[in-house]
Design a protein around this nucleic acid. Sequence first.
RNA 1: GCCCAGUUGGCGGAAUCGGUAGACGCGCUGGUCUCAAACACCAGUAGGAAACUGUGCCGGUUCGACUCCGGCACUGGGUACCA
Length: 822
Amino acid sequence: MFFIQWVMIHSGFQQSNMRSRQASILRSPPKQILPVTVNNLIVRTSDPSYYKWTQWIFIQLFNSWYNPETNKAENISTLIPKLKNFNSLSEKDQSDLLLEYRLAYLSDTMVNWCPQLGTVLANEEVKDGVSERGGFPVERKLMKQWSLRITAYADRLFDLVEKVTTPQQKKAVEEYITFAKNRSERERMADVKKISGVFTGGYVDHPFTGKKIPIWIGDYVLAGYGTGAVMAVPGHDSRDYAFAKHFDLPIIEVVQGGDLSKESYDAKEGKLVNSDFLNGLEVKDAVKKAIAAIEEKGLGKGKTNFRLRDAIFGRQRYWGEPIPVYYENGIPKVLEEKELPLVLPEVDKYLPTETGEPPLARAKDWKYKGKFEYEYSTMPGWAGSSWYFLRYMDAHNDQRFASKEAVDYWQNIDLYIGGAEHSTGHLLYVRFWTKFLYDLGLIPVLEPAKKLINQGMIQGVSSFVYRLAFEVTDTLAAGPPIGFNAWEAAFLTLKEIPFFISKKRLDKSFQDFKYQGNDLEINEILESFQDLFNKEIPNFTGKLKISRYTPIYVDVNIVNNNILDTKSFQNWREEYKNAKFLLEENGEYICGSEVEKMSKSKWNVVSPDLMVEQYGADALRLYEMFLGPLELSKPWNTNGISGVSNFMRKLWRLYHNGEQFSVSDEKASKQELKTLHKTIKKITYDIENFSFNTSVSNFMICVNELTELKSNKREILEPLAIVISPYAPHIAEELWLKLGHKESITYAEFPKVNEEYLVESAFNYPVSFNGKTRFYQEYDLSLSKEDVEKEILNNEQTQKYLEGKSPKKVIVVHNRIVNIVI
RNA sequence: GCCCAGUUGGCGGAAUCGGUAGACGCGCUGGUCUCAAACACCAGUAGGAAACUGUGCCGGUUCGACUCCGGCACUGGGUACCA
């Protein structure tokens, strides 16, 4: 099923870019890969008939608060009686007060504001304090933003005991609750080498020993961490340790196991020492006991702190669902259900206004009831995707997000497969919205999915070329003065003729982007470039100096095995048409490479379309599975696809004699049945365990064995087609029709294993000495453990390895292994 | 920095409960077919002459460790406005 989402533009000014991105998303994955296309189940979150309900859910969030007593979301009306003097407040004050409780609320949040672009930037769009696009300064700015009170659900998002969960989900939950802190703090944390800090002059009393402890401020401490308690463990935290060493502060060992004169002991394992009533306890127990003791003394209370922050819900972009809010005298109010959807208004440009308001502020006469301003920010990309699993259940309902019958019937997703990179954002919000809708009694489930698998991502292999930067020296000093034109030409040449150095040669001469030393290699480089240079400008007398190099992403489609096609490179971009290269001795230009996420900006995207054209959709499907475990990330490499393609040809041949379809109705042999049932057993196991890569291997083994047996029996080939159909649906369907069936193979029953065919009569024992396998010995399965032991000790080869000694111990694991300890 | 995952031949990977390391495929080498090439087919392919050694590194548990435990290194992902 397809899921088409908003495509956001990065920064307002690239509409054409936006169109191409949208197109590329529509194109991939190639729809032939999917066995079934259910056209009426396409869900577009950008379609008003869909986002009407996204807006509707937002209104429910606005109208709700989280009741800590019942531990669930409730309508805001149940809150009002609990608020003192609520009715005597002004309308504005009432609104402000309620906003402090609503699950969708306006708040002041810190954002990366770029005044020149007039927009808020993602952290990843900010590099070294300037915008990635355009290099404009970025400042941290406090902004009124719509936010969702996801923290109200922190306990429940983290609470794994709550009804449904799987180990995978637990893992995912842990990923959700990741560290939250703002950028400047992160930058300070990253800079751990610098140790700076100061004694404040103040002291605190130790709650248990009563000793006075001086308070220092360190740069590496997070401002938001903890709640006012003073904490430092110089013996057992490497940063605290470095800090204490630097300022010569006392370091007291409290956990045994390290050597504090040399380094900190950070491991949280070991017995406590120098800790009064905690001495002798393990760290875990000591923490519990210390918290209990603090509570007993009335000094504090144990509390679990979640590293979760409320989710900012407003975006200063055009492409997104309008937030169904208008302002009446500065008071935010939501639309009524019958007024939905609030559709995106037309604007002249997808740019912020001159005064820095979001693009929606450009819309002419876009006012609620003709007089009240709408909210100008839009919803983030994840808004629509936070509930689309529900819409699939009833995609065309215009009365409700999905009918009650549908949500009761379908419940939740059986299996959610998504990349780990989605865990933090998307999944967190889906689970939050699901719990919220459950609280309101709108859906019967607490979790969007019964099971969750984090599939690995197919990564790209980026290639780099290295451009050298030169300086011209001695232009005036050398010989007769050269004319202005020659001098200018030199600079133009440097600009217009980019010089690229091959990776291996680069590695010999450069470190950390800087040219190191004046070795032979680099002189050679200079000479060869000087030659090129002098050819370009005959009367040039200046000297070249290499200053540094810059790695540049190069389109992977013109690189093969790290070797650059230099001709194609020159044609790739106008600015490189005069490019010169310093090659390896064998005349090749070697590129640098790195494995990373596929991304247009990294020029490492390979499209599967070509693969489908060349090998077919089944081969691509099989190959993708064959690449490795579902949960592992790996770089996309098409080198092995011919293997699965060959396999499919062999499979086809089993059912054919030359061009002719040929399947016999003879009884299958024991051997053939064994091969078939072995395969059924393995594939059944693999499907249950999502181990699709080994399935493909086993189909190959099966087809190889059947080819060997020259098997073309219907009794074998018919079940085989069914077993393979989930993996290679197109070819299986075609074979199925040729086998004479009228109905699609999709409806055929999956064959069951018959263990009878798999029974063996003997086992070939690996015989090992001190754990090393030396030879094999076959024994009948009926032989008991004791008999095997007796037999093996009398074995001629055993005697050879024993060299006359008598074994200390003989271990026989029945039908598994023999190990003799000498 | 913090959180998560991974590291096995030339390459992708297999080994299901602690019990035969390298299944299957790619690549490579040699051969058959061909005037030749491609395709196809056959054989070999962790290293080493061998004894043996080998699953990122150091240590531990065990008769036995890719698998379990402790520590470390490196790579990838996330870190909240890419979705």
